Amino acid sequence: MLDKVFTNNQVTIAGRVVGEFGYSHTVYGEDFYTVDIEVSRLSNSNDIIPVMVSERILDVRADYRGYVLRANGQFRSYNRHEETRNRLVLSVFAREVEIVEPEEEEQDPNHIFLDGYVCKKPVYRKTPLGREIADVLLAVNRPYGKSDYIPCICWGRNARYADQFEVGAHVQIWGRIQSREYQKKISEEEYEKRVAYEVSVSKLEYQSDEEEM
């Protein structure tokens, strides 16, 4: 059972470190820190992705800015309470990590596989230029009854396909993690710049649980 839980959320990612490690939290005496890495896209733009690392697998006190961090792990979420509402916070939880010289990394990998369940009806829409998009929120199980809630975005034919999914549909997704800046309205006259993280879907498949049984 645990093997299935650990394989239903798999991430391989690498990118240039663009900041220092910052303390996140402590679990059973083990401290965890986050750092931002800059991951290149084929379009020559970049995504800034937060990676969470245990102090036990890397010297988080060192300054790695300019180096490339490679990590294998999972894409995880938790709710951070802010004033009167909860905010979904996402990061790559690293199980294995390596720091390498920039010239050793020819291309920044950014791959994710998710096996989970649709937890709200997908939202299908078209952009002003006619591009088809569907937003899917996927619940991916974790050990001890926990789940990660991962926002995913589908394009074109995948968007039309995702629009057919009902809440509770079992889906497998392949894609990449991307970041997106947006303006959060704080008051009638005040906006705050924030960054959202989501999975850009390149492939998705509906899973029939009856067939698996």
Rank of each mutant, 00 (worst) to 15 (best):
E210H: 07
E212I: 14
C119Q: 06
E96F: 07
G116M: 12
E189T: 14
Y182K: 09
S179K: 10
K120G: 04
I13Y: 03
Y64S: 14
R65Q: 15
E83T: 12
E190T: 07
Y149T: 09
E189V: 08
K184G: 00
R157F: 00
L88I: 06
S187N: 01
S202P: 00
E104T: 02
Q172P: 01
H25V: 08
R95P: 00
E198N: 02
D108M: 08
V39K: 04
A134E: 04
K193P: 05
E105V: 06
V39H: 05
D31C: 11
K4Q: 13
E132T: 07
I49D: 08
I150D: 07
D108E: 05
A134P: 03
A94H: 06
E98Y: 09
H170D: 15
R180E: 11
M1P: 04
G168H: 07
L88S: 13
A196K: 12
G175C: 07
P128L: 13
E188Y: 01
I150Q: 12
D108V: 09
P122Y: 09
S91M: 10
Q207K: 15
S24A: 12
R142M: 07
L2T: 04
V92T: 03
A169E: 14
M213R: 05
A134N: 05
V140N: 05
E38W: 02
K193G: 00
W155D: 02
H111G: 00
G29Y: 02
E98S: 11
I57Q: 14
V97Q: 01
L90T: 15
S202T: 13
E96V: 09
E212K: 08
L42I: 04
P128I: 13
P50F: 07
I57N: 12
K193V: 11
R56S: 09
V17T: 10
Y144R: 12
E166H: 09
Y67G: 03
E55L: 03
Y23G: 10
Y124L: 13
E211Y: 10
Q74D: 00
R180A: 07
I173D: 03
Y124T: 03
N46A: 11
W174I: 03
D47E: 10
E98I: 04
V123C: 00
A62K: 04
V89G: 08
V5D: 09
Y28C: 05
E189H: 06
E96L: 09
Y64V: 07
V201S: 09
Q74F: 00
M213F: 13
V27I: 14
R131A: 06
E104R: 12
V5S: 07
M1S: 10
V89N: 14
I48G: 04
L90F: 06
D31S: 15
T26Y: 05
R85D: 11
G116L: 11
P143F: 08
S24F: 03
G116W: 14
S40F: 01
I37T: 05
H111R: 14
Q10P: 01
H170C: 15
D36T: 10
N44A: 08
I57C: 05
R95H: 01
G73K: 02
L69Y: 13
V171H: 01
S179W: 06
N141L: 04
